[in-house]
Computed example of a mutant assay.
Amino acid sequence: MSHKSILVHLANDDEHQTRLDVALRLAKQNNAHISALFITTPVGMPVEVYGRGASVQYLLDATKSAENRADELEKEFKDICHRENISHNWIVEEGDHISLLADHAHAADIIIVSQPTFEHFEDRFRTRLVEEVTLLSGLPCLMIPRGFDASKDIGKRMMVAWKGTREALRAVRDNLDSLRKAEKVFLLTIQPETEDALSLSEVRNYLKRHEIEAETVKIAQTENSIGQTIQDAATAQSCDVIVCGAYGHSRLREMLLGGVTKHLVKEATIPVIMSH
């Protein structure tokens, strides 16, 4: 992957070290700059639920714990960046995670976030971070699955989930450099129809003009969901990342993802790059 300015979301949650390790590895591989944004406000307590049982003392204690972790992580981060000669900056802020990430997105090429969990009531709010950052930031969003091994490759074998839409084309354009550097690129279509055949041919030729040879994979939809079919196809081709459009819409000022994207956000077992 070759995005030159990486914004990584950090907080005092279980997956923050993995996100940072992935960002450091990608920056080292691609001579990229890292902006590490550590947000001390509890990631599981967004503004919408502040008045619903979240005590002032809980928030104070959680924020203080996050501040302490930020101090520890800052030293580790800066030591690694200096040792590896990685361009970087470290930011600590308090507030709404989505708003702060959107504010800092203007100086980045890609945002790294974690796949949310779905075990507790609060998790329904955590999912908004992936959804809204993807839909509102204007940047591709690299979602790292839970429990991911940060030493694994990302971007050597890439699966593009193609559909003849603006979002899918945006995902391709957002990742042209990464696709060009990949060892293998697959262009996946599910249940291709006659009207989609031309757009598939066009996008393959478009990639060729950018020196990207993509192998077309056509799959008839099975009883599985489209999201699961995408995952299965990526697994069958030993892909290490899925590139897809994030299909969403606004309803009463709430940003919502479509069913396929929601499935990947919830169930993906390899990293996913989403663009809207």
Rank of each mutant, 00 (worst) to 15 (best):
R69C: 06
A70W: 05
A70G: 10
D71M: 12
E72N: 11
L73H: 10
K75H: 14
E76R: 15
F77G: 10
I80Y: 15
H82V: 12
H82N: 15
E84L: 07
E84T: 02
E84W: 04
I86A: 10
I86L: 07
S87A: 06
H88R: 05
H88N: 13
H88L: 02
H88V: 03
N89F: 02
W90K: 07
W90E: 08
W90M: 04
W90I: 06
I91E: 07
V92Y: 00
V92L: 04
E93G: 05
D96T: 12
D96N: 14
D96H: 12
S99Q: 10
L101K: 04
L101V: 08
H104N: 11
A107M: 13
A108D: 06
I112R: 01
V113S: 08
V113P: 04
S114V: 03
Q115I: 01
P116V: 12
P116Y: 11
T117V: 12
T117K: 15
F118A: 15
E119N: 14
E122K: 11
E122S: 15
R124D: 15
F125P: 13
F125K: 10
R126P: 11
R126A: 14
T127E: 15
R128E: 15
L129H: 06
E131M: 04
E131R: 06
E131N: 09
E132T: 02
E132S: 10
T134G: 02
T134S: 06
L135A: 04
L135H: 03
L139Y: 05
L142K: 01
I144R: 00
R146W: 04
G147R: 01
G147N: 07
F148M: 03
F148S: 07
A150L: 08
A150D: 10
A150P: 15
A150G: 08
A150C: 10
K152M: 10
K152P: 01
D153G: 11
G155M: 01
G155T: 03
K156H: 05
V160D: 05
V160E: 06
A161D: 04
W162A: 01
W162K: 08
K163W: 07
G164Q: 08
G164V: 00
R166P: 04
R166M: 12
E167T: 00
E167K: 01
A168E: 08
A171P: 03
A171D: 05
A171Q: 01
V172Y: 00
R173Y: 06
D174S: 13
D174M: 04
D174R: 03
N175V: 08
N175E: 06
L176G: 02
L176S: 02
L176H: 03
D177E: 14
D177Q: 14
D177P: 03
L179H: 00
K181W: 00
A182K: 00
E183S: 09
K184P: 09
V185G: 00
V185T: 12
F186V: 06
F186I: 00
F186H: 12
T189L: 05
I190K: 11
P192C: 08
P192R: 11
E193K: 13
T194M: 12
D196T: 11
D196Y: 07
D196N: 09
L198Y: 13
L198F: 14
S199I: 05
L200K: 03
S201Q: 13
V203N: 01
V203S: 03
R204G: 02
R204K: 12
L207T: 02
